[in-house]
Design a protein around this nucleic acid. Sequence first.
DNA 1: GCAAAGCGATAACCTGTGTTACGCAATCAG
DNA 2: CTGATTGCGTAACACAGGTTATCGCTTTGC
Lengths: 230, 230
Amino acid sequence: MQHRLTQRLINNQVLEDEDRLALERLDPKARYFAAREAVMAHGARPGGVQWVEQGWAFRRRRLENGVSVVFNFVLPGELIDPAVLTGVPSDHDVVALNEVRTLEVPVAGLRAVMSRHPRVSEALLHGAVQDGARLRDQITHLGRSGALKRVAFFFASLAERQATADPDGSGALGAIFGHDIIADATGLSRVHVSRTLKQLRAMGLIDLDGRRWRILDAARLRELTLNATV
Amino acid sequence: MQHRLTQRLINNQVLEDEDRLALERLDPKARYFAAREAVMAHGARPGGVQWVEQGWAFRRRRLENGVSVVFNFVLPGELIDPAVLTGVPSDHDVVALNEVRTLEVPVAGLRAVMSRHPRVSEALLHGAVQDGARLRDQITHLGRSGALKRVAFFFASLAERQATADPDGSGALGAIFGHDIIADATGLSRVHVSRTLKQLRAMGLIDLDGRRWRILDAARLRELTLNATV
DNA sequence: GCAAAGCGATAACCTGTGTTACGCAATCAG
DNA sequence: CTGATTGCGTAACACAGGTTATCGCTTTGC
């Protein structure tokens, strides 16, 4: 069976057939999580490498003061936490947004594949580098933009990522989440998120469709965003 | 010659002797940069992988509006930009803080070593994962802490990183930089950075020694910082 | 089916930080 | 040696966004 991890790694165009086969031969074990259940806990050092096969999750860190921060979302095909490959305990938890199915292989197994199939390592490195780029974008917005741009950025990157994972989409996001999560992802208060969402809705960029956010105009959302000089 | 990249990769404890030898056999070429000179430009897709051999650099992104953001510092032994290994153009530039010497090997050369020495890839993956962790810490502070904690965090992480790179240090930082860089790294205005530094100096945590910052109390700085629940 | 809890909207008020402006000292260019 | 530039300190003022509180609607638990 060709699962989502290989699909995604193949997208990065470094894998050859034999690499793919080796990954598939690992025969991963499925795990299921309900919405809001922790797929992996902060501080854990699990013995298996997991990736999302179906559903969405998000990365969150809880602080002593009860404050929490949301980093980004984990979409199908992405590793729950690349850090398990390095043996370092995780620095955040990963929480299921809706019903999530993951696949898991033993760390040792994947490492063995990596050592015999260097392109697999390379592909994982690509993933980690891409992750870094997304985090830098988030830092850029947290540091240097106001509420409207921050929330626009939040939705724009979500829309983009969903588009690559599921190109036929209609703009409705694949998960349901409330203001609190947007607040933690943008560094704003819940009240101010509410004010800002109202604005974005008035501008016709997003809308709430039942309990599900819908992206109405991804291009204009992206324009609102802070853009780097080329 | 054992250079800084191998030293650092060895610190991650994945490399064996043969890996180290392969890296050293690449026979890197030295390059020199003056303070404030760009080691690598945003948008570049260089043919060589560079790492810092001596001196300090920092990562910065300039935006259309003239605003700029500083991500973090590049210390000896660290890659200028892991993205060159993935062929993706760089999303920020890397600027020398003082006199910097880098070493460079052709991308193809390092990739060849990676494919024959899987532990080298693994070590690079470790580095990328560590980088991600640092970026998440920065996001945490930008999103959920005030000016004092942000600036404290800036100095605390600088102090820690310098301590691992150069454990015998006396608290004086290995580079000279002004308020503008602190402002871009913390997402504050220059004026408010000035106010905040005054506070931190009054608290006896840092001090200015000529034009060089000195960390007086790294432990208390770290305590001031936002800490994750374990 | 009802009470309780959760979530979103909105209002009033407060404050941390941005902005603008100016003065001073140190460094630099000629 | 001197004028220009750059970087830091400080003050006055403005405002974006935080905080607290209240209300209504929806969902959840029993």
